[in-house]
């Protein structure tokens, strides 16, 4: 097995429960390799975000082990962990703060700086590169709160990239964005995995985007993995229907390549289109 094929992130027999819901999640086994983009889908309350927090080390599994670069998560000091793995929570509060885009992105360098008070030329170079990757360089000196939701989300991804992680974890990065920005963000995540060799894990509600941009999909159902594998194995009505509890149909469109979309069946009324 070559070095490239060893997983960047591994979950082995993970189990987790809350005091009011013991045995809520697990057992989950999965691995994310370099170049993979894992999309985690499932209904509300299925444990998607909990799973992501377990990966990030924000929650501690009651059983099993999370490994990053082959090392168990608890054995990594917080900063060393932060140099390997970046996490993007939902709804970052920075929008109320008076920080410029460049400041936000430079703050991603925190785990890499030792005792120096100021960012080095190296830090600035890496932040520039992160802003270039996410096409946020154009408004580098604007305050974050003047940006649109989609622009701000790209800035936060840039800050995560400035951390220079091997693994990028994102919790519903497109939940409040319009269609164009949803596609833009997922395209970016796909590129980061496939082109730049990161391991990306993204929690999302959009099964069609998960199928389009994920290289692997994990379907969670009530804390248990219901299906895990290539998108074409997971994103199909026979697998999704029992989990979501709605009938689904596949629309196939031709023209500019064949495209398949999964939409809920049996919606009442007629769409005026």
């Amino acid at each position: 097995m070559s070095a490239d094929e060893s997983p960047l992130l591994e979950l082995a027999e993970i189990r987790f429960g809350f005091p009011e819901r013991p045995d809520f999640l697990g057992p989950v086994d999965l691995s994310v390799k370099s170049g993979e983009c894992l999309a985690v889908v499932g209904p509300n309350g299925a444990g998607k975000s909990t799973l992501l927090r377990l990966m990030a080390g924000l929650l501690k599994p009651q059983q099993g082990e999370v490994r990053v670069d082959g090392r168990p998560l608890p054995s990594l000091p917080p900063r060393a962990r932060a140099r390997r793995m970046a996490f993007l929570p939902q709804g970052i509060s920075a929008s109320e703060l008076d920080y410029s885009v460049r400041e936000i992105v430079l703050m991603g360098r925190f785990p890499h700086r030792s005792w120096s008070l100021f960012e080095s030329a190296e830090d600035h170079r890496i932040a520039e590169a992160a802003m270039a990757t996410t096409s946020t360089g154009l408004f580098a000196d604007r305050p974050v709160q003047t940006l649109s939701g989609g622009e701000a989300q790209r800035v936060h991804i840039a800050a995560a990239l400035a951390q220079q992680p091997d693994v990028l974890l994102l919790d519903e990065p497109t939940s409040s964005l319009d269609l164009q920005h949803q596609i833009g963000i997922f395209g970016l995540l796909h590129d980061l995995a496939v082109r730049d060799g990161l391991g990306v894990v993204v929690v999302t509600h959009d099964i069609n985007l998960a199928a389009r941009f994920g290289t692997k999909v994990l379907l969670m159902d009530n804390g248990r993995p219901a299906a895990y594998g290539k998108p074409e194995k997971v994103i199909k009505p026979s697998v999704l229907e029992p989990v979501y509890g709605v009938g689904l149909i596949v629309l196939t469109m031709s023209g500019g390549g064949r495209q398949r979309w999964i939409v809920p069946a049996g919606l009442r009324g007629e769409a005026p289109i």
Binding site: A56, L58, A80, R81, F87, P89, I92, P111
Partner: peptide, 12 residues
């Protein structure tokens, strides 16, 4: 300032 979860995963 950026939030608890972000700060924690950055190594604070």
């Amino acid at each position: 300032r950026l939030g608890d979860e972000l700060a924690a995963t950055r190594g604070v």
